[in-house]
């Protein structure tokens, strides 16, 4: 009953929301029935509804092996690194970019830092190979001029969390900084005016005005990223690392593991099971963090 009263009271608001709601129902909730496949043995000739229920059988290949824990750990660890470095870099870049006074230069830089977003992972892996290959990679050649022995990067798993973080940072910092720049643009000029009158340096203004006032946006971006923390970046990791055995100890994530196990089997049920695992875990993480964020900043909560 409360719902109908609310609709009558805020008719215009619900009207604004209506197209979005229709979209959600049709394109997001209706197809969700497909997730049932995780608990069924999907037979094409029987369709989704006719296929038999098999309980948790589809999860056995993932949880029954010894690898699900290391792979989950890698996923969480790498994603945490990506979030911290990526968001951190975006914050730094947007803050500093905001300080640039010359409008023309600022526009050029804004366009340039956006470019890495367009580079496909295939091309990125070529570039990384050009830099890191043992025989005549750029890095090894630099090391040689400094008198250091060449490192076999593609056989040394310990370096790769850092390498992947740098690559991810490079590719996404520009994209994320655009969102933060828009938030910065929304800050009223009066704050700065009064700060200058009080004798604050630009650095202090940045630290004490700009940064706190974009806190809401930062927290929202953080929350949204946390929800995907169980989803590994398949495109990047498989594109750059591939099936390179020595590196898998630190770079194998849930998605690459699932891909390797299932790629010859054409089995939708088992891949649905893995996705369900990732979604549910991500949901738990977000619900927990959403509650935490709620205490810090009322506006930043997702729900």
């Amino acid at each position: 009953m409360g719902l109908f009263r609310d609709i009558r009271k805020n008719a215009w608001l619900y009207l604004l929301a209506l197209p979005g709601i229709i979209f959600l129902v049709v394109f997001s909730y209706l197809p969700m029935t497909g997730h049932m496949l995780a608990f069924k043995d999907y037979r094409i000739n029987k369709g989704i509804w006719g296929s038999p229920w098999v309980g948790f059988k589809n999860f056995r290949f993932f949880f029954g092996g010894v690898n699900w824990l290391p792979v989950t750990r890698n996923t969480l660890f790498l994603n945490a690194l990506f979030i911290i470095a990526g968001l951190g870099a975006a914050i730094v870049v947007s803050l500093l970019l905001n300080e640039i006074r010359r409008a023309a230069y600022k526009k050029v830089v804004q366009s340039v830092i956006f470019l890495p977003y367009f580079v496909s992972w295939m091309v990125v892996s070529f570039i990384v190979y050009a830099m890191l290959n043992t025989k005549d990679g750029t890095i090894n050649r630099m090391l040689a001029t400094l008198g250091h022995a060449p490192i076999s990067w593609y056989s040394s798993p310990q370096y790769w969390p850092a390498i992947l973080t740098i690559i991810n940072l490079w590719k996404s910092a520009g994209y994320n900084s655009v969102i933060l720049l828009a938030a910065i643009a929304g800050i009223s000029g009066e704050y700065y005016e009064s700060a200058v009158i009080d004798g604050a340096t630009r650095f202090q203004q940045m630290r004490l005005i700009t940064l706190p006032l974009i806190r809401t946006t930062i927290l929202v971006l953080l929350l949204l990223a946390l929800g995907r923390i169980f989803y590994g970046d398949f495109g990047m990791i498989y594109g750059v690392v591939g099936d390179n055995t020595p590196l898998l100890a630190t770079t194998d994530v849930i998605d690459t593991y699932s891909y390797r196990a299932l790629r010859n089997l054409a089995n939708f049920s088992m891949s649905s099971a893995v996705v369900l695992y990732q979604s549910v875990m991500g949901l738990i993480v977000v619900v927990v963090f959403n509650a935490i964020v709620h205490r810090v900043d009322e506006n930043a909560r997702l729900f």
């Binding site: 997001s28 497909g34 496949l37 999907y42 996705v275």
Partner: peptide, 13 residues
């Protein structure tokens, strides 16, 4: 938000 996480699954979509 729920839809963002759960996605729609290829077959259903």
């Amino acid at each position: 938000y729920f839809t963002m996480l759960l996605g729609s699954g290829l077959v259903g979509f």
